[in-house]
């Protein structure tokens, strides 16, 4: 056996070993795992305090709480926009705090994100918005041409791929955002108030879609204020207040803690 082959085999076996450990970690601790996480901003404000949290693969979880509860900080910690002051944030078995700067893009590819304000590129059409997510990950054009129509069909926009973003309703725009978040097949979908700008009918349409996505195996974490949606969905509800988890209920309801 040549030295090169030996090195390659050693490297592969180490890679396989790491992957195995990662899978074991996910099974044991969860796809998202927070261990004694605190985040204090430079002004001394504690946005998150000693937070412990475990979300299993395939779960649908609502994160609820009033303004200043720590939802946005949690979102940023999960996206590795912020680094925890203390404790560990683990996503897909990776310690976000220990990532090097150049490893962050690859880490983020595991998480699809949608926002309340859609954040679409209004100077491009539906197809280009969705294709954009693959283009920047260097996916070959032929593959993009195959994937975009499929994902647009999934979100119910098959016939609107040429439409300009401004021509779409709020619900349709959020569907485009969902298609963009899902086209790279992330294991986790992080939705920050995805129904916040929608009328009830469109909001329910989006929730149905999120449920479908979840049913196909994607872990969905949704940050919301919408009491009606949370209470109707009968999913796990984690309530935050002043940076602390005040309740964590399976099939829970949006309960305001005093």
């Amino acid at each position: 056996m040549s030295a090169k082959t030996r090195i390659e085999r050693t490297y592969m076996s180490k890679k396989e070993e790491r992957e195995k450990q990662r899978q074991e970690f996910i099974e044991e601790k969860g796809i998202i795992y927070l261990e004694n996480v605190s985040k204090t901003y430079s002004a001394g404000v504690a946005a998150v305090s000693n937070m412990n949290l475990s979300i299993k693969p395939g779960e649908f979880v609502f994160i609820v709480g009033e303004n200043g509860a720590g939802k946005s900080t949690l979102f940023k910690l999960l996206m590795r926009e912020l680094k925890a002051t203390e404790g560990g944030v683990y996503v897909m078995g990776q310690d976000a705090g220990k990532l090097r700067h150049r490893q962050i893009p690859k880490y983020r590819r595991q998480i699809g994100v949608v926002f309340q304000d859609f954040r679409l590129l209004t100077d491009r059409n539906v197809y280009e918005n969705v294709a954009f997510a693959q283009r920047i990950l260097e996916v070959p054009t032929e593959e993009i041409r195959r994937n975009v129509p499929t994902i647009l069909a999934t979100v119910g926009l098959a016939g609107k791929y040429k439409a300009k973003i401004r021509e779409l309703s709020g619900g349709e725009q959020q569907r485009v955002a969902l298609a963009r978040a899902l086209i790279n097949q992330p294991a986790i979908l992080l939705a920050d108030e995805p129904t916040g700008n929608l009328d009830p009918q469109n909001a329910w349409g989006i929730m149905e879609l999120l449920e479908e996505i979840n049913a196909q195996g994607t872990t969905v974490v949704m940050i919301t204020h919408n009491r009606e949606i949370v209470n109707s969905m009968h999913k796990r509800v984690i309530a935050l207040k002043k940076g602390v988890i005040v309740s964590d209920q399976e099939e829970g309801e949006y309960v305001e803690e005093d």
Partner: peptide
Amino acid sequence: SQEISIMKYIGATDFL
């Protein structure tokens, strides 16, 4: 800025 923020969230490299 909007496009850049989306790129960052999707996982674009610094180079891109």
